[in-house]
Design a protein around this nucleic acid. Structure first.
Lengths: 131, 131
DNA sequence: TAATAAAATAGGAATCATTACTATTTTAAT
DNA sequence: ATTAAAATAGTAATGATTCCTATTTTATTA
């Protein structure tokens, strides 16, 4: 833990660590405001970006137009439910080898890949379960 | 070709078909305006969305905050250059089998995957080449 | 401990991509 | 030719995110 965090930054990181789903900046804002009603949305954004730059959290983009954040920085994949929009973790091995495949007929230098999966989550599959 | 396209819609699709890179809505707008200086940005957006919904073009999201569009609707992967931001095609086999891997320890129904690669493109690799 | 400097905040304004709205025009159908 | 449907241009609205600035908090130093 190189940098000493401000109170609000610590709060934001703590909150993220309690969550296995992957909140958006606004969700972080709404929740953290319960402990600190004065915190501003700008502060949430600034600190999420800072934490992501430090590598202490991860920014997740799954094409829904909103950034999600994850306190688990270990490499893993995500699933987005096309019904409820939730983003959840997937238990599966890393696919780094596909970078080699991708580089085989390509001129440039491939540094990495982004992969996520989509479909209907376990909750939405069960009819009548609106949660 | 089920639906008869309007003049501007046809123009947009034609333009996309001439491009192997993957223009954004604004790039489409700027270019198509050369043939029809009166076309509005709203029309470009509306028709790109319509064409994508019809399956005649594909919307590509590579996490740069802007949608790109591709007239090639066959399944293939993309590469984003972290230097110049360009989005280009990759020559490689489809990885649909990873959906099975992803579904192995997952509760829901996985319908598909999104994968793209990033790194430095051939052009940006060569130092001094600013193009 | 008081004074000074640096870092961070709250709150609001600005930005940028995209979508929505509406009066008008174009195209199709009768 | 008349009427109805579809699409457009142009502009306003939206929503996520970033930027700006006066003020506050925290750290540093004498």
């Amino acid at each position: 833990m190189a940098l000493k965090h401000s109170k609000q930054r610590e709060m934001i990181k703590e909150f993220l660590m309690t969550r296995t789903d992957h909140p958006t900046a606004d969700e972080v804002y709404v929740n953290v405001r319960r402990q600190n009603p004065n915190i501003s949305l700008g502060t949430v954004y600034r600190n999420l970006t800072l934490l992501a730059d430090l590598g202490e959290i991860k920014r997740i983009r799954v094409g829904d137009g909103v950034d999600h954040f994850d306190a688990d920085t270990s490499p893993h994949y995500h699933f987005v439910c096309t019904e409820c929009g939730r983003v959840m973790d997937l238990q599966m091995k890393n696919l780094e080898e596909i970078v080699t495949l991708a580089g085989a007929n390509f001129d440039g230098q491939i540094a990495g890949h982004v992969t996520y999966f989509y479909g209907v989550c376990g909750n939405c599959k069960k009819p009548g379960t609106t949660s």
